[in-house]
Amino acid sequence: MHLPDRVSGAILAGLGALAAYGGSLLPGVPGQDVGPSVFPMVIGAGLIGCGAMVAFGIGRSFEAPGPADAEGAAPGAPPPRPASRFGGLRALLPPALLILYVLVVERLGFLPTAAVLVLVTALALGARLRIALPLAVAAPLAVHVVFSRLLRVPLPDGMLPAPW
């Protein structure tokens, strides 16, 4: 997901233009110079400006080497794998699982949904089934005890109510 500065600058400027346009459509408040449209328009203008500057590389000389560069690789660590075409998409797995959780948790119930979430994340991070399976059983139960029993959060029962 590393974008060239030209692309990220263009995205910022586009976002700014949308914000400013969207803001300009908002109705004003009678008797007040500064209505609800002013802040989005100011922010939009700022984003357009910043986007242009990012795209043209102004201020890049200030960029210190990020912590990632400063850390370097630990000695003995394997060299980072060359990113395959779909390698970057793996990163999208956690948010995708969260969306899945939102979509099915009410129907399926907390325990099965949470078990799927934990199992898939663990396997994607390279856990063996020997670890991932017990974790997928134990973690949802433990979370259920703390949040549903102790903190009284109404976690949905769905198809599989908790045994307590």
Binding site: L97, L98, L117, V143, F147, P154, L155
Partner: peptide, 27 residues
């Protein structure tokens, strides 16, 4: 890491929901 981070994801989902009992928070 593969045993710790899945629990973090689960806690993030449940914790966000618990704040207002609202699934939109998870989105």
């Amino acid at each position: 890491r593969s045993a710790v981070l899945p629990v973090i994801v689960l806690l993030a989902a449940v914790g966000a929901f618990a704040i207002g009992n609202n699934l939109f928070a998870v989105v």
